[in-house]
């Protein structure tokens, strides 16, 4: 198969590589660039272990063709800075015992780092963001504790988060447990919001 030359920035460094079109970004990162901190647990988009930050957004690297990443900026767990929120996430996961086998961990670190940078409130990070990751060891309890600790440590940058979303999320948080169908309640509440416009 004809190979393509792509250029991308990975953890701040420019890389130029030749790849077959079918090569997954996860394989490029792991096996061609040697950044094995990003893990692969399914190649079905479902486990979240392969999550990296592409152009500022957390994404599944197993569901991106390497050729599609041409021109993008990719951050992996190896590139997470050793200060600020990035480090707060890692420190909190360690201190709260938020990892056991550690296989899911790099993906979770990346999602949480991206969420905090984007000003996502802790409650949303604990639920919707973490729901995008499967962890079989921890039962999530201590990962949630780590989210709280990290957000606390780095300051919950709520102000950066859009107001209507904030209302939505905190409302949802209160109703959690009342409605056993999170998604039903989500739809209904926001309908009320929508209806009041």
């Amino acid at each position: 198969m004809n190979e393509h030359t792509i250029r991308l920035t990975v953890n701040g460094e420019n890389a130029e590589v030749r790849v077959e079109p079918r090569m997954l970004l996860s394989d490029l990162i792991r096996h061609q660039l040697g950044l094995t901190g990003t893990h692969v647990g399914c190649e079905q988009g479902a486990c979240g272990a392969c999550t990296v930050i592409i152009d500022g957004r957390p994404q599944r690297s197993c569901l991106v063709l390497a050729v599609q990443a041409d021109g993008t900026t990719v951050e992996t767990v190896e590139g997470v800075e050793c200060d600020g929120i990035e480090n707060a996430v890692q420190t909190a996961l360690h201190e709260q015992h938020g990892l056991q086998c550690g296989f899911c961990t790099p993906g979770i670190v990346m999602s949480l780092v991206a969420a905090h940078r984007a000003g996502v409130p802790a409650a949303t990070a604990r639920e919707q963001v973490l729901d995008g990751h499967l962890c079989r060891c921890t039962g999530y309890v201590n990962i949630r504790a780590a989210v709280d600790a990290a957000w606390e440590a780095a300051g919950d940058r709520r102000t950066g988060y859009r107001q209507e979303n904030l209302g939505q999320e905190s409302h949802r948080q209160e109703s959690h447990g009342q409605e056993s169908l999170g998604q039903v309640s989500l739809g209904q509440e926001s309908h009320r919001q929508g209806g009041s416009e």
Partner: peptide, 21 residues
């Protein structure tokens, strides 16, 4: 006592079988 082997997965320096070349 805090776990001694968290650093690898947290920073991408773990060595799982698919990491072996």
């Amino acid at each position: 006592v805090p776990r001694v082997n968290d650093h690898g997965p947290l920073h991408g320096t773990g060595l799982y079988v698919d990491d072996i070349e």
